[in-house]
Design a protein around this nucleic acid. Structure first.
Length: 569
RNA sequence: GCGGCCGUAGUCCAGCCUGGUUAAGACAUCUGCCUGCCACGCAGACGACCCGGGUUCAAAUCCCGGCGGCCGCACCA
């Protein structure tokens, strides 16, 4: 029995939403081409995402390279953590995660062992294949990143990015200046990411090259609020928290009861829900699942997945909403030796009284001559502790060019000063909603797929349909064709995605456009030649209304926007 | 990566077990006629054995390998 997944895949293939890539060379799994309808649909989903995040939230978009130098992914942890240690049974060839196997056989916890250590443990403890008792192979690693080389030769290693996020962390200082050094700010990026999956399946749900739409919101770690939160606090969410008990709760209560860690995360979850509803996923097919502690990515502190219910695969993750804390910025700061911090100004400057040492130049100059410069630098860099030592013992000892110099009260004077501290440097935390565009597109198609009288009707949300309006002559006659083509041309000029068809019967043409989700069809009949009116037919109800040709474009526009319906034109 | 099943026009599939003339059908597509609102009818056209090797006089068919798909195991930041 063909399930909905089969039917959607068949439709996608036949009508040009997407196709397996490189078919004439036998195909390569994990890659798909978007055909004309799929590419247009994808573009519309992406534009909707832009409308939500870039326009309404003001998180402007950037566009970065998809290849990055090794250092980026060493810092991000992907070179080390995006790897699985694998062993294989030499006899039955079953592969195992080496660490999982040892953990389960020896009933011990393993943390951060090297591959060699894992291998030694297996040999020492004589661990065999749990399935057949066969001998195990050595430990080998599988890194899910695509590796490449930058420039000639193999000296400079690069990787195809496994997520779009890293570019935005690497660019932090530039972005921080762009946003005029104020937190919070957000940056968006829509682009390709690459993961060399061991065994990709399930069509668009697990690709080796896929489109991510990510936003990184940089915030003060002590202020994870959102100014728009009060307006969404009453909206309901279907949550599946870590404890596994599903609840329906308002965003406000979820924060109050500490189910969702903070307002900003809750706001992002609501925003994601609004997005999914807007593209036509019904609310009963949406839930948010909290990651278990051990399931979370190496960088995340808390993470909620937006999941959409599908017929074959059950709940499918389409958006991940994570609090990545300061992990990424700190890692890049360390690896690049470049400060990646924001300056947090205190609401009131803090005053601090302290003692400092003032060099007595009158004495130091004649005594130390050309060494004075160095000595003064050393004195100025002496911390509070050094000052305290001096107060107690009456001298300090410094080292200049291997020479120890003792300085006593003759050379130094203690001064009491009041220092004003206006703020401090902090590493912002990052909240990240990360959309899987391809998965969303699949879920949209599956949701939209319906059958009516044995015919497929793709009930896509109207503004998102790749073809927005079809124009037909009632029958294939030159007089009608001429008028229909004129309407077709004028709609194209108005900016609509339009199709024109005069082949076969009117019924077949309606069926053809229903199948690809065209929301409205305009039909020119013989009456039209007399009264300048045409029929608009609604995809979902097949209801028809006659309107003036001159009003067609305005009416279609309003229908698509949902400002009017076919019943109240 | 392993195991099971599978791979034939754009799509769905017959034929394969038991090798043999021109690989059948349906739908879709195209052309012509017809057709006055939901896949109408008639006539015609286009179009396929996943790739490589082997066995054989002869391979879609049997054997081996590869690639791809589905399911299960494993994996999935």
């Amino acid at each position: 029995m063909a399930d909905k997944h089969d039917k959607v895949m068949e439709l996608a293939l036949r009508r040009g939403f997407f196709w397996p890539s490189f078919e004439i060379y036998g195909g390569v799994s994990g890659f798909y081409d978007y055909g004309p309808l799929g590419a247009t649909l994808k573009k519309k989903i992406e534009d909707k995402w832009r409308e939500f995040y870039c326009v309404k939230e003001g998180y402007l978009e950037i566009f970065s390279p998809t290849i990055g130098p090794e250092e980026v992914f060493i810092a991000s942890g992907h070179v080390e953590s995006f790897v699985d240690p694998m062993v294989e049974c030499k006899k039955c060839r079953t592969p195992f995660r080496a660490d999982h196997l040892i953990t389960s056989v020896l009933d011990i916890k393993l943390d951060g062992l090297s591959f060699k250590e894992l291998e030694d443990l297996i040999r020492e403890k004589r661990i065999k294949c749990p399935d057949c008792g066969g001998e195990l192979s050595g430990v080998w690693s599988y890194n899910l990143m695509f590796k490449t080389h930058i420039g000639p030769g193999e000296r400079k290693v690069g990787y195809l990015r496994p997520e779009t996020a890293q570019n935005m962390f690497v660019l932090f200082n530039r972005l921080y200046s762009f946003y005029r050094k104020k937190l919070p700010f957000g940056v968006a990026q829509l682009g390709k990411a690459y993961r060399n999956e061991i065994s990709p399946r399930q069509g668009l749900l697990r690709l080796r090259e896929f489109s991510q739409a990510e936003v990184e919101i940089f915030v003060d770690p002590e202020d994870k609020t959102h100014k728009g939160f009060s307006s969404v606090a009453n909206k309901k969410l279907r949550l599946l928290p870590r404890d596994g008990k599903e609840i329906i709760i308002t965003a406000g209560d979820a924060v109050k009861k500490n189910i969702i860690a903070h307002e900003l995360l809750a706001y992002q979850i609501i925003l994601t829900q609004e997005f999914l509803l807007e593209i036509g996923i019904p609310s009963q097919k949406i839930r948010f699942r909290q990651h278990a502690q051990n399931e979370m990515a190496h960088y995340a502190a808390d993470c909620w997945d937006a999941e959409v219910s599908t017929e074959r695969f059950g709940w499918v993750e389409v958006v991940g909403i994570a609090d990545r804390t300061c992990y990424d910025l700190e890692s890049h700061e360390k690896e690049s030796k470049t400060e990646l911090k924001a300056f947090k100004q205190y609401s009131k400057p803090k005053k601090k009284k302290k003692e400092i040492l003032i060099p007595n130049m009158r004495e130091l100059g004649p005594r130390f001559k050309q060494m004075v410069g160095e000595i003064v630098n050393k004195i100025n860099s002496i911390g509070d502790e050094g000052v305290r030592d001096f107060l107690e013992s009456g001298f300090i000892e410094i080292e200049i060019m291997g020479q120890k110099i003792k300085l006593d009260e003759r050379y130094l004077e203690v001064k009491y000063v009041e220092e004003t501290i206006t703020g401090e440097k902090i590493t912002p935390h990052v909240i990240e909603p990360s959309y899987g565009i391809d998965r969303i597109l699949y879920c949209m198609l599956e949701t939209a797929y319906t059958e009516r009288d044995n015919k497929v009707v793709l009930m896509l949300k109207k503004p998102l349909a790749p073809i927005e309006v079809a124009v037909f002559p009632l029958i294939n006659k030159p007089q009608l064709n001429e008028v229909a083509k004129r309407i077709y041309d004028s709609l194209k000029n108005e900016g609509f995605y339009v199709t024109y068809d005069e082949n076969d019967s009117i019924g077949r043409r309606y069926a053809r456009v229903d199948e690809i989700g065209v929301p409205y069809a305009i039909t020119v009949d013989f009456e039209s030649l007399k009264d300048d009116m045409v029929t608009i037919r609604d995809r979902d109800t097949t209801k028809q209304f006659r309107v003036h040709i001159k009003d067609v474009s305005k009416i279609i526009k309003n229908l698509l926007k949902g400002e009017i319906t076919i019943e109240n034109i």
